[in-house]
Amino acid sequence: MSRIGKKPVAIPGGVTAKIENGVLSVKGPKGTLTMGLSDQVTYSVDEATVAVQPINQSKQARSHWGMQRTLVSNLMEGVTNGFTKVLDIKGVGYRATAQGKNLKLQLGYSHDVDIAVPEGIEIKTPDNTTVEISGIDKQKVGQIAAEIRRWRKPEPYKGKGIAYRGEFIFRKEGKKK
């Protein structure tokens, strides 16, 4: 039994959810999100909740159950509050600036790194060592944050690089004399 899957997802005020043609669409104050439905799980929408149940007790159906419930919960959270990831840049000369629909990174390479911001994602740089990524789709926000971080992962000796806010970087001791 899935402990997460058993709980129905509450529909917040100002949010509507409906199922049409195998697609769950959720509309809220921040926008509209859609999700394709799994055939291993049944969904039921009423006025206040969305419930998810497996179609049978097979291992595959039970494994989809909790994940599908979490995806529905992420849709509700996204259209009401949205999601934000914050990246911190550490290193001498490492900088980031948001320029319209592009993010320009200076990371010690011989060239600047330009990253195109996808539709539905907003990137802010409150200072030149902080990047705030926000949007209503949790997967897109996490994906663009991972792509930015991939350009210069934090290294263990000095901690230089791009790290998520709150991420622990395991530090190593340097060479001894």
Rank of each mutant, 00 (worst) to 15 (best):
E132M: 13
V131E: 01
K30V: 00
I55C: 05
Q57N: 15
P154G: 03
S73L: 05
F83K: 08
I121R: 05
G108K: 05
V50Y: 07
T32N: 06
I89K: 05
G31M: 02
T42W: 07
Q40T: 01
H111L: 11
K124Q: 07
V117C: 06
G66T: 14
I121C: 02
G100K: 03
G31C: 02
M35C: 03
T97D: 13
F83M: 06
K158N: 12
T70C: 06
V86D: 04
G31H: 01
V72E: 07
D114F: 11
G91T: 09
L87M: 04
L103S: 00
L103H: 01
D127K: 12
A116P: 04
L87D: 03
I133K: 06
T70L: 13
T130R: 14
V72P: 08
A96E: 07
N74K: 12
E147I: 09
Y43N: 09
S134T: 13
L107C: 14
K138A: 12
K160A: 12
R152Y: 08
R62C: 12
I148D: 02
P29E: 11
I123F: 02
Q143N: 10
Y157L: 13
V92I: 10
K30S: 02
Q99A: 10
T129Q: 15
A116R: 13
T80E: 05
G108L: 00
V92K: 15
P118Y: 01
Q68R: 13
S134W: 10
V86C: 11
P29V: 03
Q68A: 13
D46A: 12
P118M: 02
R150D: 13
A98C: 09
Q68C: 15
R149V: 08
V113G: 06
V113S: 10
G31Q: 06
G36I: 07
D112R: 12
G66M: 11
V50P: 04
G135T: 08
D88H: 14
Q99N: 14
V41C: 04
I121P: 09
Q99K: 13
I136H: 06
V92L: 14
G31K: 03
G36K: 13
Q57I: 07
S63I: 15
D127E: 06
M67P: 02
T32W: 01
I133C: 04
G108A: 03
Q139P: 00
Q68V: 10
M67D: 11
A61Y: 08
L71Q: 14
V92E: 14
V52Y: 05
Q68E: 15
Y94V: 10
P156Y: 01
L37I: 12
E147K: 14
E77W: 00
R150P: 02
V79H: 00
Q106T: 15
K138G: 03
S63Y: 13
N74L: 10
A145S: 15
V50K: 10
H111C: 04
A98S: 09
P29N: 03
P154W: 07
P54E: 01
D46P: 00
K138T: 05
W151F: 15
L87Q: 02
D137G: 06
G66V: 07
K158Y: 11
S134C: 11
F83W: 06
K160H: 13
K104G: 01
T97A: 08
W151K: 13
L87E: 03
E77K: 13
I133L: 05
H111S: 14
E77T: 05
I148M: 01
A98T: 10
G142L: 04
